[in-house]
Amino acid sequence: MLSVSQLTCQRGERVLFRDLSFALPAGQWLQVAGANGAGKTSLLRILAGLSEPVSGQVTWNGQGLREDREAFHADLLYLGHQGALKEELTPLENLTLSLGMEGFPPDEARVTEALHRFGLQGREMLPSRYLSAGQRRRVLLSRLLLRPAPLWILDEPFTALDVHAVATLCQLIENHLAAGGSAILTSHQTFSLPPGLSVTL
């Protein structure tokens, strides 16, 4: 369970949000809503432990995020705005290498299967610079199938995806929730997921 209490975030001189508190139990998902520049990404980055809030606390299963960073990261899968893709490497290489760096066995067969699930057949061995924005996004999302983690934090996961890929992603999130996982996401698109919690900034 992720709980957030009295969180205040400031960017430069502007206060983005003040005294934000909520809790996300296992098996639930939370949508962070708000206009552009309301601080959605800033909130997600604080929840992932990348940046520090001005004040307030975030705990995961009762522990502060920085108390045991590596244990928290083992439970967290964060997908940000950027694709974390190297243009000169193929999707297959990109994913196996990043899995390796995260301490998971870089199993090529599983990676290929995950890429296929997101409709990237025949693109596994193509340097990523030839991929379209939507395809890059799908390479990134393939991580969801490869790296088990109870907590997913997804920043605008539906951007640039076609209808088919959106459905695949929703299905994945539903399975994740049914298995007792939790997810936090931001999105401006419409998508169908079972009812969840929401926070508006």
Partner: peptide, 13 residues
Amino acid sequence: QDGTLEQMALSPQ
């Protein structure tokens, strides 16, 4: 720039 560093910072390793 491409976000890899962020992923490394969040690695369980």
